[in-house]
Design a protein around this nucleic acid. Structure first.
Lengths: 187, 187
DNA sequence: GTGTTTTTGTGACCCAAATCACAACTGTAC
DNA sequence: GTACAGTTGTGATTTGGGTCACAAAAACAC
C-alpha cells in the first residue's frame, strides 16, 4: 500500500530503501467513508494529505451554504488547505470524500523534518507546488475566458475519468455554473 | 538597485555578502518602456523575471484577440510563464509593461545552479511557489463565487495601490467583466 | 423486495451582464 | 497650441445563464 507513495515520490526523486523507510516514519494512514469530512471549515489544519485511493473534493461554502468546488483530488494527489497548513491556522475550506478514501498524512513538523534530513524532498515539493500553481493559473484563465460549454469540454479533456466518477451536480459546482445549465449543454 | 532583490530574498532566507554576490552572478538586469513586451505568446521562455520597479501584466489573448489578465506584477514580484519556463518551451501568455519597468532575470540553468550551490534558495522558491498557489486558489474561489462588485472590492482590498495605478479597462480584464459593467458598479 | 433520497432532464420566466453606440474627458506627441 | 489615441461614463438593446418548478430515473437503505 505504501508502494503508491513510493512510486509517486520516485517519479521525481530517487530514494533508497532506508530513505523511504525514513519518509514513512513521518506519515500515518487513515481510512474515510464516502461522505466523511477529512477536515472542515474552521478546523485547525495540522496535516497535508496524500491520497492513496478514493476521491475527495476541496470545497468552500458561501453565505447561502452553497457548495463551490475549489478542486477535486484523487489517487496520487496531494490535498489540504495549504494556506492553513503552512500557517497552522484554521481552514477556510472543507475536504469531503466523494468515495471511500485512504490517505497518508503528514504534519508540518514531519514535513519540515523530512525537508531538513532529506533535502531532496524539497525538490519534490517544489516541483509539486510549481505544478499546482501552473494548473491553478490555467483554471483561472478558463474561468476568465471560456463559456460553460468550453469549460466543460476542457474539464473532460483534463480529467476524463472524473466525467464518469462524479455527478453532474459536482461538476457544475466545479465549473461555476448551475446544474441546469450544465445539463442543457449536451442536449 | 540590487538591494531590492537582496531585501526580498532576506525576507525568507539569510544571506552573507558572498552568498548574495554569488546569487547576483546568475542575474542580469534590463529596462523596458511602457508598452513593451517582455515576452510574447509563442516565444521560447528562457527566463524568470524579478521586478525591481514598474508594473507588468501577464495576459492571454483569446481567438478574438481580446486580452485577459492572468495577473498583475509589480515591484518585488516574480513573473514569467512558469510552465514554459520550467519546461523551456513556448509561452501561452504574454508579459507586457504597463509602466516603465526594470527587471532582474535568471535562466533555468541559473535557477538550477543557485538551487544546487546554495540550497537555501530552494527554501526561498518553495515558499514563493506555495504563496503563488495559495493566492491562485483564492482567485479561483473569487471567480466561482463572487459577483462583479464583490470581486472588485476584493481586488481593491488585496491590491489597494493598483486601484489608482491601473486603468479601469485593465481592472475589468483582470476581474473578467466588461469595462462597462465595471464602470456601472460605482455609479 | 418497498420506500426514500439523490440525481438528472426540461420547461417557463427573469435578470445581470454583455454588447453596441456615442459623447465627454483625459492624456501625450509634436 | 492642435491633433490623435486611450479612457471613462451612460443609454438602449440583447442574451446567456440563473432560478423556480416538476417529473422521471437512479441509487441507496433496510
Amino acid at each position: 500500500m505504501h508502494e503508491t507513495l513510493r512510486k509517486h515520490l520516485e517519479e521525481i526523486i530517487d530514494l533508497t530503501d532506508q530513505e523511504f523507510a525514513f519518509v514513512l516514519t513521518q506519515f500515518k494512514t487513515k481510512d474515510f467513508k464516502k461522505g466523511d469530512f477529512i477536515f472542515q471549515n474552521g478546523d485547525l489544519i495540522k496535516y497535508a494529505y496524500f491520497i492513496i485511493s478514493g476521491l475527495v473534493k476541496l470545497i468552500h461554502y458561501d453565505e447561502d451554504a452553497n457548495e463551490h468546488i475549489v478542486s477535486f483530488a484523487m489517487e496520487d494527489w496531494w490535498e489540504s488547505d495549504f494556506n492553513a497548513f503552512f500557517t497552522q491556522s484554521e481552514a477556510t475550506y472543507s475536504l469531503k470524500c466523494l468515495e471511500a478514501t485512504r490517505v497518508c498524512y503528514i504534519s508540518l513538523d514531519g514535513y519540515r523534518k523530512l525537508s531538513k534530513e532529506l533535502p531532496k524532498m524539497r525538490i519534490f515539493w517544489l516541483q509539486k507546488s510549481n505544478g499546482g500553481f501552473v494548473s491553478s493559473q490555467r483554471r483561472i484563465l478558463s474561468l476568465l475566458t471560456a463559456s460553460p460549454r468550453e469549460r466543460y469540454e476542457q474539464f473532460l479533456r483534463e480529467y476524463p475519468s472524473l466525467g464518469q466518477r462524479v455527478s453532474k451536480t459536482q461538476i457544475a459546482a466545479y465549473l461555476g455554473v448551475s446544474r441546469e445549465t450544465l445539463s442543457r449543454l449536451y442536449s
